[in-house]
Amino acid sequence: MSDDQNYWKIIDRSKKQFDQNTNIDSNKILKKSRHKALTTNILISLAILLMIVPTLTLLTYFYYGTGDGNGRANKQIEVASNVIELTEPNMYVKRMELEEQIDFFSMDLNFDVYKRIGKEEYRVGEYDINYMLDQPDFPDRNLWLDRPHQEIPQKDEASYIIHPLVSVPYEYDREWDIVESIPDGTVVEAYLSFTDSMDPDDVKDINPGLDPDIEFLWLAVDTGIEKKVVDDQGLPVTPIGYPIYKDPPNWTPFDNREDNEVAFTNTLNDLEHYESQATKIARAKTLALDERTDYIQENGVKIYGAVVTGPAPEIRKLKNNDHVRSLKVGEVKLWNWH
């Protein structure tokens, strides 16, 4: 007789003895125990399965809510907002309106971008950026501009703000024709290139006593690579600079609490730590922040161009300005210069 048969024989005998001694049906007890074990297994397995989603959610929120000083999500929001302020002339994000959606180890940022043209701000587009942990995908941009910049800047295409050491393409003369043809009752956004790089404080010399009556919205900073047009790897670079807010919001680093040049240098140094993310969000496929920060540290902040806005007749006056080398017209809106 095998061990197995012996085992079952002993069990049967024990059951019979138990039934005789206690007057209780052992099969009933066994059935009940089996049923209870099965119920326990089902309930505990179900609980474990249902705990997967809350655990992953908690881990995701823990990941985005901690690290990088103020939390990884907040840092990425700050990086995205700063990249747009620094690399897109006269374009900014209202951080209070920015919306984030967090899923399992991923985040989706949605925000609108604005431009100031004349005295009013206009919503000019929207961004959608998907992050896997802290790495963004290329943003989904949707801009509603009459004169948009290239989606990906090309080497042979002139920048809208031209460095003093780079020759101005002949087609830029046509831009003055556009300014001449724009009706007087409009306000214009214009990209100015200066004859020389100058200190930020000297920019006011372009319109002393507000003549022409224009406002500076964004200043392009000479970071050493604009004159080369491309970076060390041969990728085209775009202007980088900082905004000037008359009534600055409290979320921007350029909130007039410290000099804008200092805020710009600090922001650029900070962005250098998140260069891969910043480059993905920016239109230019290189920001060369390492090279640029080194240059600024050595040479200080020098301005070689600006974005201005004003009534069309005032913008026309810039043609005879000694500091202005070339102009490119941006957006034009109906009169709002009150």
């Binding site: 609980a47 809350p54 959610t57 809510g65 939390g71 984030e100």
Partner: peptide
Amino acid sequence: LYASWGLGIGIFLAIHTVLMIFFTLGIN
């Protein structure tokens, strides 16, 4: 057995809820 599982999950969900409120308020 059931009680310890129920209590464990209940405490986990209570802590989870508090932490989620804390993180949600901190992000953006």
